[in-house]
Nucleic acid binder design. Structure first.
Lengths: 128, 128
DNA sequence: CTTGACCCTCCAGTGACTGGAAGTCCTATC
DNA sequence: GATAGGACTTCCAGTCACTGGAGGGTCAAG
């Protein structure tokens, strides 16, 4: 299977797939003409990667998850640890953004938003 | 005032301050020895920038906000528009992350997290 | 006169791609 | 057989907002 088909099947841009090969996440075979020749397992891995990335796992997380996925002797605790740590990061990021949202909402509400120059947003950015 | 003092006062790393000069956000004077010589207005601007960046405004937003801040004839509506647009982006990012959190929480709860290989997290990343 | 803290510039790297140039290969049509 | 187009290849550069480090100049204290 060529990269274009795989791209459609896995839902990843061809560029991204080449990049994943570059950094060693996949190692597709090559045809005599130099074209990458993907097998089902490659497509499977790429789909897996796409899902994991959608959930915000870093590439290094993905590398670890793929290794565990490949390893039949894995302990599910190892997978869970990665997911749990990632979850904690997501939660802290949400909290940060919620703080920011709070402040911004406040500022936007306070500002008249007309053609006069007086603006509490700018004032608060000075004083905050 | 030298960059070290400004760094403390504005709460920004010296590296960042040099970078902000590089990209034209500030233009501090120079002493005869080549050292940057910051005036109060520079420090004021840098503090403003620090605040805006903390709230997640992009550098280009900051550039616009600084210009409005400098411009006594500004309309507060222009400032508000920038803040409002940014707020919308923050809110959409929060929503995305909350979706991810939802899924991840689910997965983590389902996984036994013991020394057996069976792992619903990996399964779901295949199927999802 | 030396030590150590501070300052300077310039280059490279981060993460995870993405865009584009320049060239090869395959397939279909005339 | 020529040609047009699309798909594929590699390689280089750019994104965003810094950050780290090398290699060197400057300054104040002892």
């Amino acid at each position: 299977m060529n990269i274009g088909d795989v791209s459609k099947r896995a839902g990843l841009p061809a560029k991204t797939i080449r990049y994943y090969e570059d950094i060693g996440l996949i190692t597709p075979a090559r045809d005599t003409n130099g074209y990458r020749s993907f097998c089902d397992s490659d497509v499977h891995k790429l789909t897996f990667l796409g899902r994991a990335r959608t959930l915000g796992f870093t590439i290094e997380n993905c590398r670890d998850l793929l290794a565990l996925w490949d390893n039949q002797d894995r302990a599910s605790a190892d997978v869970r640890a990665i997911a749990q740590q990632h979850l904690a990061q997501i939660e802290s990021k949400i909290a940060d953004l919620q703080d920011i949202r709070h402040t911004l909402t406040h500022l936007v509400h306070e500002c008249a938003g007309d053609d006069r120059p007086d603006c509490p947003i700018l004032q608060r950015l000075e004083e905050l």
